[in-house]
Amino acid sequence: MTGHPSTQTAHRDASQEYEILRFEHVTIAFDGDPAIQDISFQIRHGESLVILGSAGSGKTVILKTSIGLLRPESGRVFLFGEDITHRKELDLFDLRARVGMLFQEGALFDSLTIEENVSYPLLNQKTLRCTESEMHNRVEESLRFVELEHTLEKFPSELSGGMRRRVGIARANVTKPELVIYDSPTAGLDPITANNIMALIVKERDLRRATTIIVTQRFQDGQIMAKYRYDREQQNLVAASPADVAGLRLMVMKDGRLVFQGTQQELEQSRDPYISKFVLRH
Protein backbone atom coordinates (compact mmCIF):
# COMPACT_ATOMS: atom_id res chain seq x y z
CA MET A 1 0.00 0.00 0.00
CA THR A 2 2.59 2.50 1.09
CA GLY A 3 6.23 3.01 0.30
CA HIS A 4 5.89 4.49 -3.17
CA PRO A 5 8.49 7.10 -3.82
CA SER A 6 6.40 10.20 -3.93
CA THR A 7 8.12 12.54 -6.27
CA GLN A 8 4.70 13.78 -7.27
CA THR A 9 3.95 14.94 -3.77
CA ALA A 10 7.10 16.97 -3.58
CA HIS A 11 6.04 18.73 -6.74
CA ARG A 12 2.66 19.47 -5.32
CA ASP A 13 4.00 20.95 -2.12
CA ALA A 14 6.24 23.30 -3.99
CA SER A 15 3.44 24.75 -6.05
CA GLN A 16 0.83 24.74 -3.36
CA GLU A 17 1.18 28.44 -2.74
CA TYR A 18 -1.42 29.99 -4.88
CA GLU A 19 -5.11 29.82 -4.47
CA ILE A 20 -7.35 28.54 -7.26
CA LEU A 21 -10.84 28.95 -5.89
CA ARG A 22 -12.37 30.43 -2.76
CA PHE A 23 -15.97 30.69 -1.63
CA GLU A 24 -16.80 33.10 1.18
CA HIS A 25 -20.21 32.62 2.80
CA VAL A 26 -21.92 32.07 -0.53
CA THR A 27 -25.70 31.77 -0.60
CA ILE A 28 -27.84 31.23 -3.70
CA ALA A 29 -31.60 30.91 -3.78
CA PHE A 30 -34.08 30.20 -6.56
CA ASP A 31 -37.45 31.87 -6.04
CA GLY A 32 -36.72 32.24 -2.34
CA ASP A 33 -35.68 28.60 -1.86
CA PRO A 34 -32.02 28.51 -0.89
CA ALA A 35 -30.10 26.02 -3.05
CA ILE A 36 -26.83 26.55 -1.21
CA GLN A 37 -26.38 28.37 2.07
CA ASP A 38 -23.36 30.00 3.63
CA ILE A 39 -20.80 27.91 1.75
CA SER A 40 -17.15 28.67 2.45
CA PHE A 41 -14.16 26.70 1.24
CA GLN A 42 -10.92 27.16 -0.52
CA ILE A 43 -8.79 25.09 -2.87
CA ARG A 44 -5.15 25.67 -3.68
CA HIS A 45 -3.10 24.71 -6.67
CA GLY A 46 -2.52 20.95 -6.94
CA GLU A 47 -5.17 20.01 -4.42
CA SER A 48 -8.21 17.89 -5.15
CA LEU A 49 -11.62 18.36 -3.74
CA VAL A 50 -14.38 15.76 -3.66
CA ILE A 51 -17.86 17.07 -2.94
CA LEU A 52 -20.26 14.35 -1.80
CA GLY A 53 -23.97 14.84 -1.47
CA SER A 54 -27.27 13.30 -2.41
CA ALA A 55 -29.34 14.54 -5.35
CA GLY A 56 -30.57 18.10 -4.99
CA SER A 57 -28.12 18.99 -2.23
CA GLY A 58 -26.70 21.87 -4.27
CA LYS A 59 -23.53 20.33 -5.74
CA THR A 60 -24.15 21.49 -9.30
CA VAL A 61 -25.03 24.96 -8.06
CA ILE A 62 -21.64 25.21 -6.32
CA LEU A 63 -19.80 24.19 -9.48
CA LYS A 64 -21.70 26.60 -11.70
CA THR A 65 -21.14 29.41 -9.24
CA SER A 66 -17.42 28.75 -9.19
CA ILE A 67 -17.03 29.83 -12.84
CA GLY A 68 -19.65 32.54 -12.76
CA LEU A 69 -22.46 30.67 -14.51
CA LEU A 70 -24.60 31.45 -11.47
CA ARG A 71 -24.24 34.56 -9.29
CA PRO A 72 -24.25 34.51 -5.49
CA GLU A 73 -27.05 36.29 -3.72
CA SER A 74 -24.66 37.02 -0.90
CA GLY A 75 -21.06 36.14 -0.20
CA ARG A 76 -18.12 36.28 -2.55
CA VAL A 77 -16.36 33.99 -5.03
CA PHE A 78 -12.71 34.24 -5.99
CA LEU A 79 -11.36 32.36 -9.01
CA PHE A 80 -7.58 32.38 -9.50
CA GLY A 81 -7.45 35.03 -6.83
CA GLU A 82 -9.79 37.38 -8.69
CA ASP A 83 -13.15 38.42 -7.31
CA ILE A 84 -15.72 37.22 -9.84
CA THR A 85 -18.81 37.84 -7.72
CA HIS A 86 -20.09 40.75 -9.75
CA ARG A 87 -17.88 40.51 -12.78
CA LYS A 88 -19.53 41.07 -16.17
CA GLU A 89 -20.14 37.96 -18.26
CA LEU A 90 -17.86 39.12 -21.08
CA ASP A 91 -15.01 39.75 -18.66
CA LEU A 92 -15.25 36.20 -17.31
CA PHE A 93 -14.27 34.42 -20.51
CA ASP A 94 -10.52 34.77 -20.02
CA LEU A 95 -10.76 33.23 -16.55
CA ARG A 96 -13.09 30.46 -17.74
CA ALA A 97 -10.54 29.60 -20.42
CA ARG A 98 -8.29 28.41 -17.59
CA VAL A 99 -10.96 26.01 -16.27
CA GLY A 100 -12.20 22.77 -17.81
CA MET A 101 -15.64 21.56 -16.91
CA LEU A 102 -17.47 18.31 -17.43
CA PHE A 103 -21.21 18.88 -17.10
CA GLN A 104 -23.53 16.41 -15.47
CA GLU A 105 -24.83 14.71 -18.62
CA GLY A 106 -21.79 15.68 -20.66
CA ALA A 107 -23.58 18.62 -22.31
CA LEU A 108 -22.04 17.87 -25.69
CA PHE A 109 -23.40 20.01 -28.51
CA ASP A 110 -25.59 17.60 -30.42
CA SER A 111 -25.41 19.56 -33.67
CA LEU A 112 -21.62 19.20 -33.75
CA THR A 113 -19.39 16.18 -34.39
CA ILE A 114 -17.17 14.78 -31.66
CA GLU A 115 -14.16 16.51 -33.20
CA GLU A 116 -15.98 19.84 -33.35
CA ASN A 117 -17.16 19.38 -29.79
CA VAL A 118 -13.70 18.77 -28.42
CA SER A 119 -12.13 21.56 -30.47
CA TYR A 120 -14.85 24.02 -29.43
CA PRO A 121 -12.92 25.58 -26.52
CA LEU A 122 -9.77 25.88 -28.62
CA LEU A 123 -11.72 27.65 -31.36
CA ASN A 124 -13.79 29.91 -29.18
CA GLN A 125 -11.58 30.96 -26.31
CA LYS A 126 -9.62 33.96 -27.45
CA THR A 127 -6.69 33.27 -25.21
CA LEU A 128 -6.33 29.72 -26.50
CA ARG A 129 -6.34 30.17 -30.26
CA CYS A 130 -3.92 27.93 -32.11
CA THR A 131 -3.21 26.80 -35.65
CA GLU A 132 -5.49 24.36 -37.42
CA SER A 133 -3.00 21.49 -37.38
CA GLU A 134 -2.07 22.08 -33.75
CA MET A 135 -5.72 22.09 -32.89
CA HIS A 136 -6.28 18.82 -34.70
CA ASN A 137 -3.34 17.27 -32.87
CA ARG A 138 -4.57 18.38 -29.50
CA VAL A 139 -8.08 17.14 -30.18
CA GLU A 140 -6.77 13.76 -31.23
CA GLU A 141 -4.43 13.55 -28.27
CA SER A 142 -7.23 14.43 -25.94
CA LEU A 143 -9.57 11.87 -27.47
CA ARG A 144 -6.85 9.22 -27.46
CA PHE A 145 -6.52 9.80 -23.74
CA VAL A 146 -10.12 8.69 -23.28
CA GLU A 147 -9.69 6.00 -25.96
CA LEU A 148 -12.16 7.51 -28.37
CA GLU A 149 -9.88 8.74 -31.14
CA HIS A 150 -11.86 6.69 -33.67
CA THR A 151 -15.06 8.67 -33.12
CA LEU A 152 -13.94 12.02 -34.56
CA GLU A 153 -16.60 12.17 -37.24
CA LYS A 154 -19.46 10.78 -35.16
CA PHE A 155 -22.24 12.78 -33.56
CA PRO A 156 -22.94 12.63 -29.80
CA SER A 157 -26.25 10.86 -30.40
CA GLU A 158 -24.35 7.93 -31.93
CA LEU A 159 -22.38 7.29 -28.73
CA SER A 160 -23.33 5.51 -25.53
CA GLY A 161 -23.78 7.39 -22.26
CA GLY A 162 -20.35 6.37 -20.97
CA MET A 163 -18.68 7.34 -24.25
CA ARG A 164 -20.35 10.75 -24.19
CA ARG A 165 -19.08 11.26 -20.67
CA ARG A 166 -15.57 10.40 -21.89
CA VAL A 167 -15.85 12.88 -24.75
CA GLY A 168 -16.90 15.42 -22.12
CA ILE A 169 -13.72 14.63 -20.18
CA ALA A 170 -11.68 15.07 -23.36
CA ARG A 171 -13.34 18.43 -24.02
CA ALA A 172 -12.74 19.57 -20.44
CA ASN A 173 -9.05 18.72 -20.65
CA VAL A 174 -8.17 19.62 -24.24
CA THR A 175 -7.11 23.11 -23.17
CA LYS A 176 -4.86 21.74 -20.41
CA PRO A 177 -6.67 23.86 -17.84
CA GLU A 178 -5.26 24.67 -14.42
CA LEU A 179 -8.53 23.69 -12.78
CA VAL A 180 -10.76 20.82 -13.90
CA ILE A 181 -14.28 20.45 -12.57
CA TYR A 182 -16.28 17.26 -12.95
CA ASP A 183 -20.00 17.34 -12.24
CA SER A 184 -21.30 13.89 -11.31
CA PRO A 185 -19.10 12.06 -13.82
CA THR A 186 -20.46 8.66 -12.81
CA ALA A 187 -24.14 9.47 -12.39
CA GLY A 188 -26.41 7.12 -14.29
CA LEU A 189 -23.64 4.77 -15.38
CA ASP A 190 -23.20 1.10 -14.56
CA PRO A 191 -20.51 0.39 -11.89
CA ILE A 192 -17.91 -0.86 -14.36
CA THR A 193 -18.22 2.13 -16.68
CA ALA A 194 -18.30 4.39 -13.65
CA ASN A 195 -15.01 2.97 -12.37
CA ASN A 196 -13.43 3.39 -15.80
CA ILE A 197 -14.49 7.03 -15.82
CA MET A 198 -13.02 7.54 -12.34
CA ALA A 199 -9.78 5.90 -13.49
CA LEU A 200 -9.58 8.43 -16.33
CA ILE A 201 -10.12 11.28 -13.92
CA VAL A 202 -7.42 10.06 -11.56
CA LYS A 203 -5.08 9.58 -14.52
CA GLU A 204 -5.76 13.08 -15.77
CA ARG A 205 -5.22 14.48 -12.28
CA ASP A 206 -1.90 12.73 -11.75
CA LEU A 207 -0.41 13.12 -15.22
CA ARG A 208 -1.05 16.83 -15.48
CA ARG A 209 -1.21 17.57 -11.75
CA ALA A 210 -4.28 19.63 -12.46
CA THR A 211 -6.28 20.97 -9.57
CA THR A 212 -9.41 18.84 -9.59
CA ILE A 213 -12.88 19.30 -8.17
CA ILE A 214 -15.27 16.41 -8.45
CA VAL A 215 -18.84 16.24 -7.37
CA THR A 216 -20.53 12.90 -6.86
CA GLN A 217 -23.30 10.97 -5.18
CA ARG A 218 -21.18 7.81 -4.99
CA PHE A 219 -19.05 7.41 -1.93
CA GLN A 220 -16.72 5.06 -3.90
CA ASP A 221 -15.78 7.86 -6.29
CA GLY A 222 -14.29 9.76 -3.39
CA GLN A 223 -12.50 6.62 -2.26
CA ILE A 224 -11.00 6.07 -5.70
CA MET A 225 -9.76 9.66 -5.67
CA ALA A 226 -8.36 9.17 -2.17
CA LYS A 227 -6.84 5.71 -2.42
CA TYR A 228 -5.38 5.46 -5.89
CA ARG A 229 -2.89 7.25 -8.03
CA TYR A 230 -1.86 6.80 -11.63
CA ASP A 231 1.50 5.17 -12.12
CA ARG A 232 3.35 6.11 -15.29
CA GLU A 233 5.51 3.00 -15.45
CA GLN A 234 2.72 0.51 -14.96
CA GLN A 235 0.33 2.71 -16.89
CA ASN A 236 -2.35 1.88 -14.45
CA LEU A 237 -3.88 2.91 -11.17
CA VAL A 238 -1.99 1.75 -8.13
CA ALA A 239 -2.71 2.14 -4.44
CA ALA A 240 -1.59 5.53 -3.23
CA SER A 241 0.38 6.28 -0.12
CA PRO A 242 -1.16 8.86 2.21
CA ALA A 243 1.52 11.30 1.08
CA ASP A 244 0.50 10.89 -2.55
CA VAL A 245 -2.98 12.11 -1.88
CA ALA A 246 -2.19 14.59 0.85
CA GLY A 247 -3.78 17.30 -1.25
CA LEU A 248 -7.16 15.60 -1.24
CA ARG A 249 -10.05 16.93 0.75
CA LEU A 250 -13.67 15.89 0.94
CA MET A 251 -16.79 17.88 1.62
CA VAL A 252 -20.27 16.58 2.33
CA MET A 253 -23.32 18.60 1.36
CA LYS A 254 -26.74 18.27 2.92
CA ASP A 255 -29.69 20.35 1.76
CA GLY A 256 -27.50 23.15 0.51
CA ARG A 257 -25.27 23.26 3.57
CA LEU A 258 -21.74 22.07 4.04
CA VAL A 259 -21.86 19.52 6.85
CA PHE A 260 -18.34 18.14 6.63
CA GLN A 261 -14.98 19.24 5.37
CA GLY A 262 -11.80 17.22 5.89
CA THR A 263 -9.65 14.30 4.81
CA GLN A 264 -10.73 10.81 3.86
CA GLN A 265 -9.65 9.53 7.26
CA GLU A 266 -11.61 12.17 9.09
CA LEU A 267 -14.62 11.36 6.96
CA GLU A 268 -14.46 7.68 7.80
CA GLN A 269 -14.11 8.44 11.50
CA SER A 270 -16.83 11.04 11.64
CA ARG A 271 -19.45 10.52 14.35
CA ASP A 272 -22.02 12.77 12.73
CA PRO A 273 -25.12 10.62 12.09
CA TYR A 274 -25.78 11.99 8.60
CA ILE A 275 -22.19 11.63 7.48
CA SER A 276 -21.68 8.16 8.86
CA LYS A 277 -24.94 7.09 7.28
CA PHE A 278 -23.66 8.49 4.01
CA VAL A 279 -20.38 6.65 4.35
CA LEU A 280 -21.86 3.32 5.40
CA ARG A 281 -24.79 3.29 3.03
CA HIS A 282 -22.49 2.86 0.05
Binding site: I67, R96, A107, L108, F109, P121
Partner: peptide
Protein backbone atom coordinates in the same frame (compact mmCIF):
# COMPACT_ATOMS: atom_id res chain seq x y z
CA UNK B 1 -33.40 21.53 -25.19
CA UNK B 2 -29.95 23.09 -25.20
CA UNK B 3 -30.85 24.83 -21.96
CA UNK B 4 -32.14 21.76 -20.13
CA UNK B 5 -29.19 19.62 -21.22
CA UNK B 6 -26.79 22.33 -19.97
CA UNK B 7 -25.46 23.01 -23.47
CA UNK B 8 -26.10 26.73 -22.95
CA UNK B 9 -24.03 26.65 -19.77
CA UNK B 10 -21.37 24.64 -21.60
CA UNK B 11 -21.24 27.34 -24.29
CA UNK B 12 -20.68 29.99 -21.68
CA UNK B 13 -18.06 27.86 -19.98
CA UNK B 14 -16.26 27.26 -23.26
CA UNK B 15 -15.94 30.86 -24.31
CA UNK B 16 -19.07 31.78 -26.26
CA UNK B 17 -21.83 34.17 -25.33
Amino acid sequence: SMKVTEQIDAMRALGTD
